[in-house]
Design a protein around this nucleic acid. Structure first.
Lengths: 102, 102
DNA sequence: CAAACATATCATTATATGTAGATATAATTA
DNA sequence: TAATTATATCTACATATAATGATATGTTTG
C-alpha cells in the first residue's frame, strides 16, 4: 500500500504555516475559546477567523462544541501542543547553533 | 524583543509546507546530496529544485558546500531531523486518537 | 581555448491563498 | 414575534507562490 505520508505532513504544516492560524492554535493552547474571544484577542475580522477555524478543523487540528449561541474551539489533541513545544525547542537549538557557528 | 517568535515559527513552517521542499529535506535526512542527485531522485526540473534549495537555505534549514563542480546540500542541524520525527510521531498519534474517537 | 557539465537566476504564467464586506443561519432575549 | 448576538458562508479582489523555459555563471576536462 502506497500510503503517501508526505502529503499528510504537508497538509498539516500548511495548516499551521499562516500567522493567523498559528496564533489561533497558540491561543487555544491555554484553553478552549469562542470565535468572538479569538476575534477580540487576535484583532481580525470575524469572517477571517471563522474561515481559518474551518480550515483548522478540516485538517483535524482543532475541534468544536456548541454551547448555546457560542461555539467553543479547542485543540483536538494534546499531541499538537507537544508538537508546538518541540518546534520552539528546535528553533532555539538552531539559533544557538547559528551563533556558535556550528 | 527583536523578532516575534510567531513570525519565525511561521517562516520555518512555510519553508517545509511544500511537497517538493519537504521531499528535499527528507531526502537529505539520509545524507548530503548534490543538486543533480536531488533532481533525479525527485523527478523535478533543475531550476525548480535549485529554487527550492535557495529558499531552504535562506530559511536556515539546509547548508551547502561546493566540491569541484558539485554543490552538496545537507541539513543544517540534526535538530531538524528530530523535528521531522516528532511530526511523524504526532501524526501517528492523531490518527490513532481519531480512530479511537478520542 | 572550447566543449561539456553543474548550478543559479530571470521572466512569464498559472494557480492558490488571504482578506474584507455583505449576507445567511441559528440561538437567545426583550 | 422582533431584535440582538454569534457564527458561517459567499463573492470579489489582491497578492503570493510554484512551475517552466530560457539564459547566465562557473567549473572541469579534452
Amino acid at each position: 500500500m502506497t500510503l503517501n505520508l508526505t502529503e499528510s505532513k504537508v497538509q498539516f504544516l500548511e495548516s499551521l504555516a499562516d500567522r493567523t492560524r498559528l496564533r489561533i492554535v497558540e491561543a487555544l493552547r491555554e484553553r478552549e475559546k469562542t470565535v468572538s474571544q479569538l476575534v477580540q484577542e487576535l484583532g481580525a475580522t470575524q469572517s477571517n477567523i471563522s474561515g481559518h477555524l474551518r480550515l483548522l478543523k478540516i485538517s483535524g487540528i482543532i475541534k468544536s462544541r456548541q454551547e448555546g449561541k457560542y461555539v467553543y474551539y479547542s485543540l483536538s489533541s494534546s499531541a499538537i501542543a507537544d508538537f508546538l513545544t518541540k518546534l520552539e525547542d528546535m528553533l532555539a537549538v538552531m539559533r544557538r547553533e547559528a551563533l556558535e557557528g556550528a
